[in-house]
């Protein structure tokens, strides 16, 4: 079945390519027009880098797309050596971050992704469009990451150049599949601005998390209130050394809130595990410390639909 799926999927993409080429041949343009701009006469590599993009598609022989970003080049064409366009992206005389971004926003401001650009952190921190988007292609630093079966570039490599704390967090043993390229930073955050804190796409942390983890939406017959209030009370979504992205090792995470008679406040320590401090099997191993600790019994930690005490104490 798997081999069949491979063949079908590859045939589908190959057919797509063939039909595209056929369409190109059959839909012959009435004239062999060219949108290669005059700028390519000297800046061929810059033209080549955008030729296949929307920017290239909208260009024309006079280089109107080039000038839309790099400034009027009419004098520059006449005297390339001495008359430079007022290029806001020039390394020698760069414009301010806001001025650079306004170049892009002149066309893209109406894009729905940019609805809340002005309210976002990146705009406030002078992060420009060109900091993340490489219009002409940019060589990037070597990727330092574990092997992944994905061939695609990883968005996190871009975000991680500034957000080093997050870059390190996603490398931790318990993490969302970001380094595996199965999730992107922009799945949860809108880097183009949002009204929510930390530019979440959804209006709250819980709405964000349950958009994927729909099984945690509830409503539960017996909810666990800190779960309803904020997933981040217990979890670090970027990565953790503790399992299930928790902030602290259990049972301590639970005991930081639950201190009661008998086992909630029980003293779990070095001789509560599988082995004694001497390394021999422990005849007094505590079922509340080993394995999943509190969750061995209180499994329904996000809420329960069980009746009576089984539900109230989240054991079923």
């Amino acid at each position: 079945m798997r081999a069949g799926a491979v063949v079908r999927a590859m045939c589908f993409c190959a057919a797509l390519a063939i039909s595209a080429v056929a369409s190109a041949q059959s839909a012959a343009a009435p004239q062999q027009a060219s949108n290669v701009p005059v700028c390519a006469g000297c800046h061929e590599d810059k033209w080549t880098s955008i030729a296949m993009s929307a920017h290239g598609a909208k260009n024309d022989a006079s280089g109107s797309m080039c000038q839309a970003c790099h400034g009027d080049a009419s004098e520059h064409i006449k005297d390339p050596a001495n008359a430079k366009p007022a290029n806001p992206f020039s390394r020698l005389t760069p414009a301010t971050a806001g001025e650079q971004s306004n170049v892009c926003l002149a066309c893209h401001a109406g894009h729905r992704e940019l609805t809340f650009w002005e309210s976002g952190k990146h705009a406030k921190q002078d992060v420009t469009c060109a900091n993340c988007h490489s219009i002409h292609g940019k060589e990037r630093n070597p990727v330092v990451a574990p092997y992944t079966t994905s061939f695609r570039p990883n968005e996190a490599d871009v975000c991680g150049t500034c957000h080093q704390q997050i870059r390190s967090a996603i490398m931790k043993p318990s993490h969302h599949p970001i380094i595996e390229n199965k999730m992107k930073c922009s799945d949860c955050h809108n880097p183009h601005g949002a009204l929510s804190p930390v530019m979440l796409r959804h209006e709250s942390v819980n709405a964000e998390c349950t958009s994927c983890h729909a099984d945690k939406r509830g409503p539960f017959m017996f909810p666990h209130p800190p779960v309803d209030e904020n997933c981040l009370s217990c979890h670090n979504p970027h990565g953790s050394v503790h399992y299930m992205l928790t902030n602290e090792h259990v049972p301590n995470l639970c005991q930081d809130c639950h201190d009661w008679s008998k086992h909630p406040g029980s003293f779990y320590q070095g001789n509560s595990g599988w082995l004694t401090p001497q390394g021999t099997p422990n005849s007094s191993v505590s079922t509340r410390l080993i394995a999943r600790s509190c969750l061995n019994c209180h499994n329904a930690i996000h809420g329960s639909n069980a009746p009576g005490a089984r539900g109230k104490f989240l054991t079923r």
């Binding site: 798997r2 999927a9 590859m10 993409c13 797509l16 595209a20 598609a57 079966t149 061939f151 595996e180």
Partner: peptide, 30 residues
Amino acid sequence: VLSNIFVHGRDDKNWFDAYGENFGRDDMYI
């Protein structure tokens, strides 16, 4: 088998990007 296909096309009005990797594997992406 590891596999990957990328096809990108455009004219002045139309465009498409087709991408697929790891066909038939548990981490397939199209």
